[in-house]
Every structure is written in C-alpha cells, then in structure tokens.
Computed example of a mutant assay.
Amino acid sequence: MGRDRLDTVSIANRGLNYGDGVFETMRVHRGALPLWPQHLARLREGAGRLGIAVPDVDFIEARIADMVSAVDAGVLKLLLTRGEGGRGYAPPADAVPTWMLSLQPLPEVLAGLRVHPCETRLSMQAALAGIKHCNRLEQVLGRAEAVRAGCDEGLMQDLAGNPVCATSANLLVLRDGRWRTPAVETCGVAGVLRAWLLAQDLVEVAAVPPEGLADADALALCNAVRGILPMRALGAREWSPHQATDELQARLAMAYPMFQHAGSKP
C-alpha cells in the first residue's frame, strides 16, 4: 500500500485491529470544505501524537476535490491509519499509512435535541485527549444508550462525574450571559467548531460541575458537520428556546453560510 493511493482495508490493518489511526468528518458546501484548514491541522496533530506519517497533502487535496467538486452539500470522512502490521500492539517501524475517503449525505434537520445523560463514562488519558483517534467505543456505548432512551444524542461525563461533551459534539453551557465549554485536556475531542467559537471569544473554557447543567440558562451542542444545535431537553429537564442560542447561531452563519439553517440530527 503506497502513501499516495486510496486503499481498501486489509484484515491486517492496524486501524481495524487496534483503532490505530485518526479521522476527520467534514462538512461539504458547494463543492468545497470550508473548514478544511482546521481539520487538516487537527489531523496533523493527532497523527503526530500517534507517530503516523500524514500522506502528501497536495495529493489528498486533489482527491478530495475530485470527490466533492460536484457536491452541493454532504459529509466527507477522511480516515488515516498506521497501515498494516503483524499480530501484537507494537507499531511496525516500516508500516505504510493507509488513508481513505467516504462521502455521505447531510443529516436531517432538527429544531432542538433531546439528550440522554449517559451512564458510560469517558476514561481520562491525556495522551489521546483532544484528537479524533479511531478508538470510539465509549462513544459507541454512549450513543447506544441514547438510542435505547429514544433520544437524539448522549451527554458524557468523565470518571469524576463532570460533564465533558456529547457522543459526537462539544457541549456549550450558558450561564449569566456567557457561554462556557468544558476543557478537553484529559478526555473528549477538541472540535474545530469549538475552536472557532473560542477564537472569536464567543465561548470560554470553564469547568462545568455535575450540578451546573440543571440550572443553566441554555444548553447547546456544536460540531463541524451540524453547526450549533440547541438542546431542548436533558433527561427530564427541559429548556425553552433562548435568544442567546439564536445569536450564537447567527454569528456562526455570518462566517460560514453553510450553517445558516437550524441544527441537524446526529
């Protein structure tokens, strides 16, 4: 398998066997990826932490353009694994990275999310925190809980019981007129849309204790595919639509018109 090829997955692929890889899930808008620079930066960060070489970026961008140039709206996933290796956890020194692209339609739109408080907790591992590595079993279990509860998403906590994020989105908490988001230094994913909100000083990083959600003025989720999604309910607690959420969505849509509509179902 060469670094400049689009490959299918071998049974010996370490991404399949051990989750040894990273991925990015990106919004396609009018034949382009508006947030590609941010996704590429996170891809490089994650691959660097795992010691996986990123294939030639010019080649990847050319293949992306081939795939999305005629697509008005969709979701593009880029998966990068360490490649093939023998049995055992030790990374082969000569492994050649494998990367793949897949294109899916956009999720359907929802006006507000019903979120299930998950029993499954996020393990705390600073070496993996923030990056989108391929071991997502905690999120798989959390989303399965949400589906069984008849909800749209699942809210996940760390081992100490502090709210961190949803299974596939970052958490935004409005209190006293200011949006806050939990830190992701020990667990959770550093979302590219979360990073944009922080850079624009629209959100700040702050600890959110377990009791800090029920009395919040509003809750929302955000990710780079669906934008900002107002949370209608968390368990039995419900919230009415809030003007601050509308304003935050409007600020995002001014910068990225692809998010001008209300949120989408996960």
Rank of each mutant, 00 (worst) to 15 (best):
139 Q>D: 07
140 V>E: 08
140 V>C: 01
141 L>D: 09
141 L>Q: 05
142 G>N: 01
142 G>R: 02
142 G>L: 08
143 R>M: 14
143 R>Y: 10
144 A>Y: 14
144 A>H: 15
144 A>W: 15
144 A>L: 14
144 A>D: 15
145 E>N: 08
146 A>W: 08
146 A>Q: 10
147 V>C: 10
148 R>D: 07
148 R>Y: 06
149 A>N: 12
151 C>D: 09
151 C>P: 12
153 E>W: 14
154 G>C: 09
154 G>Q: 11
154 G>N: 13
154 G>L: 06
154 G>H: 09
157 Q>I: 02
157 Q>Y: 15
157 Q>L: 11
158 D>K: 11
158 D>H: 12
159 L>W: 09
159 L>N: 03
159 L>T: 08
160 A>M: 02
161 G>W: 12
162 N>E: 09
162 N>I: 00
164 V>Y: 05
165 C>W: 12
165 C>K: 12
166 A>T: 11
166 A>K: 13
167 T>A: 14
167 T>N: 14
167 T>R: 14
168 S>E: 11
169 A>E: 06
170 N>G: 06
170 N>C: 01
171 L>D: 06
171 L>K: 08
172 L>P: 02
172 L>T: 02
172 L>G: 00
173 V>A: 05
174 L>K: 15
175 R>I: 01
176 D>Q: 12
177 G>P: 03
178 R>H: 15
179 W>N: 03
179 W>G: 02
180 R>P: 01
181 T>D: 02
182 P>G: 05
183 A>E: 04
183 A>R: 11
183 A>N: 08
183 A>C: 09
184 V>N: 01
187 C>Y: 06
187 C>I: 04
187 C>H: 07
188 G>L: 05
188 G>F: 03
189 V>P: 15
189 V>T: 14
189 V>Q: 11
190 A>N: 13
190 A>L: 10
191 G>W: 11
191 G>A: 09
192 V>D: 09
193 L>D: 01
194 R>Q: 14
195 A>Y: 04
195 A>T: 05
195 A>M: 02
196 W>P: 00
197 L>E: 10
197 L>T: 08
198 L>P: 06
198 L>F: 14
199 A>L: 13
200 Q>M: 10
200 Q>L: 03
200 Q>H: 12
200 Q>F: 08
200 Q>N: 05
200 Q>P: 06
201 D>T: 04
201 D>W: 02
202 L>V: 02
202 L>M: 09
203 V>H: 05
204 E>N: 09
204 E>R: 14
205 V>R: 07
205 V>A: 03
206 A>D: 03
206 A>G: 03
207 A>V: 12
207 A>C: 04
207 A>F: 01
207 A>W: 11
208 V>S: 00
208 V>R: 01
209 P>I: 01
210 P>E: 00
210 P>G: 01
211 E>A: 07
212 G>S: 11
212 G>K: 04
212 G>I: 00
215 D>M: 01
215 D>Q: 01
215 D>F: 03
215 D>C: 00
215 D>N: 00
